[in-house]
Design a protein around this nucleic acid. Structure first.
Lengths: 341, 341
DNA sequence: ATTTTCAATACAAACGTTTGCAATTGAATG
DNA sequence: CATTCAATTGCAAACGTTTGTATTGAAAAT
């Protein structure tokens, strides 16, 4: 069923059908109603190829993921984010293509390729695109795009971005400890140097400084962001642990490792050592003891990102110039067993 | 850059360029080489819309997921599967559109809609499509499709399917217990009635029967497939647990709950009670004690599914009739702490 | 009664490919 | 030297839309 078939049935020209189905005001009410009825009855759907050929609008949004596919906890986070994005864009009738920045086999830049081939309507970047080629391409081809989740420190000042306030996350973690009289604090920090981790730590330190609570370099242990690293570090430095009352793990997964090491070493959580994680991966509520942690509002990130991107796409369609926006989401702490409310 | 631009540079007709870039034998070696060089230099990509308009082949495969999006462990499994699928199809230069069977807001059947609009090349179904409308549509429109992961009992005998041998999974679980002299066995079975669970149980029972090991209705506890249900059931029937030496949880997540209940109830795993789960979700290696479980070879499922689907697509393109195939993958047991090797 | 205006509709070109068929080569055959 | 043939290449229609412009007919303005 094509619009020309509908045209024949309705006894009008194809262009009238096209206009009707696209809600153009250039068709009379009755004609349009008649056409829409016929289309409805026949389960008509536009041929996206034909349409895309002319309009370059194909009803598809691309999500670009970073390439650390096999780093387990990262994957969980991205999958969740992706699921939410899909749910939201479903409502708007957009399809979602998920891809990595570069094809690992051919080395081809997927963003550029996708856009050339399919005329993607918009792009959601879940990681920083560091290379100039891509950035230039996106700017030149005027594709609406938005960064999601990553802190804007890494991103061009003029790009749109929706991000979580990692500084604040660290800040409220410190607050949670201190307000409970837990003052001798230790931090497990990933060694990957990502900005988000740095910000979490800065927020943490900022609060402690405000309250004049001693916290220095020696209280920051830098390790890989893995279960194993968390486990080993706590086991290895078991003796030093006795000096601390609270542990802030900058990612949940390290916290799990630490928790296990504590159990095996006879350190009672939260009595001997209170623990706060960061991320609120779904498993954190099932681990034992259930982890108190800073919740990353994935659903919010997804929702706001989509809304903003769709706004950008609409702006572009109307040829409207737009301001870039940086939208900030405040994380919250969720209390469980590893640090009681 | 369009093929006509390349044609001008190469001083040939567009049709020659098209044929060259599509590896048609109707172009001489030198001409073709010249054309390909120019295309390469200019970073040429076909316009998928124009191409799709004619060929109905757009380089897109759709993955249809079930709608239990928010059931956590299910999501993890699907996300992993999806990730693998993406990796593999990336190599073949297919894009992946992920969608649910029906749009939850509009009620529109996404499979039918997608195919009408975009002329999807092939479909991977991660759940059973129960409704006749979809099934009829797929058959009539001759779309290559394949079921992945679900047991073929639910699926039309004439459809392609790649699935895991759940029966065998149950069988080797029983074998693992029995060969270690653990004979008084309990099974935690999900109450959802999915065929895969039934098969796992059947395999389990089959082995026990072979060995004349008593195992009856009272040894099967039927509960929701959740962490909480596993936890509560064990806590509630704590006294009865003393009669058992081994627990087979038909899904890892229930096993996690059971493990936690054991810890809180002073039941030592694996000494008092050995535990085997099913799925091998990534977390099973981090839970404490690490879970011995039946591994679902997600990577294999993904790989084989893709290979077969691509074969189906090729067959269709060549107008070849093909036999349907049912491909079976054997799961394996992975030993950790909850039942020692 | 004639012209102007306007809403509604029709016409036709364009989007970038693919592909059956025709035309052109140059060489091989009779 | 005329003919056949195969290998290349060119031509043009087709795919299903969108959209600027032209046409229509009737109402409004002169």
């Amino acid at each position: 069923m094509r619009i020309i078939d509908i045209a024949r049935i309705a006894n009008v020209h194809v262009s009238t059908v096209s206009r009707s189905l696209n809600n153009s005001p250039l068709v009379s009410e009755e004609t349009s109603a008649r056409i829409k009825k016929i289309a409805e009855e026949n389960g008509f759907e536009f041929n996206a190829s034909a349409r895309g050929l002319i309009t370059s609008r194909v009803g598809t949004i691309a999500v670009i993921l970073p390439h650390n596919f096999d780093q387990f906890p990262v994957t969980v986070f991205h999958s969740e984010l992706h699921n939410y994005l899909r749910m939201i864009l479903e409502r708007e009738d957009y399809d979602l293509i998920v891809t990595f920045h570069k094809n690992r086999f051919t080395g081809v830049n997927n963003i550029i390729r996708l856009f050339k081939r399919k005329k993607i309507d918009g792009i959601i970047l879940i990681h920083q695109v560091h290379d100039d080629e891509t950035e230039r391409f996106m700017k030149e081809s005027n594709i609406p795009f938005i960064y999601a989740h990553y802190p804007p420190e890494n991103i061009n000042i003029n790009d749109d971005v929706v991000y979580v306030d990692h500084f604040h996350g660290g800040y409220i973690a410190a607050e949670a400890f201190v307000s409970r009289g837990i003052l001798k604090l230790l931090c497990l920090k990933p060694d990957t140097g990502d900005t988000e981790y740095k910000l979490r730590l800065k927020g943490f330190e900022a609060y402690l400084k405000e309250r004049n609570i001693p916290f220095g370099e020696k209280d920051i242990w830098t390790i890989p962001p893995t279960f194993e690293a968390g486990f080993n570090e706590i086991k290895r430095k078991k003796d030093e642990i006795d000096n601390y009352q609270g542990l802030f793990a900058l990612t949940d997964f390290t916290a799990y490792g630490a928790l296990q090491a504590c159990r095996e070493s006879g350190i009672s959580v939260p009595n001997d050592l209170a623990v706060i994680g960061y991320d609120d991966i779904k498993f954190s509520q099932y681990i034992s003891p259930a982890l108190t942690t800073i919740h990353q509002p994935i659903d919010q990130i997804a929702k706001i990102t989509c809304e903003r991107l769709i706004e950008l796409i609409r702006n572009k369609e109307r040829g409207k110039k737009w301001e870039t926006k940086r939208i900030l989401i405040k994380p919250e702490i969720v209390f469980r067993k590893s640090l009681l409310l």
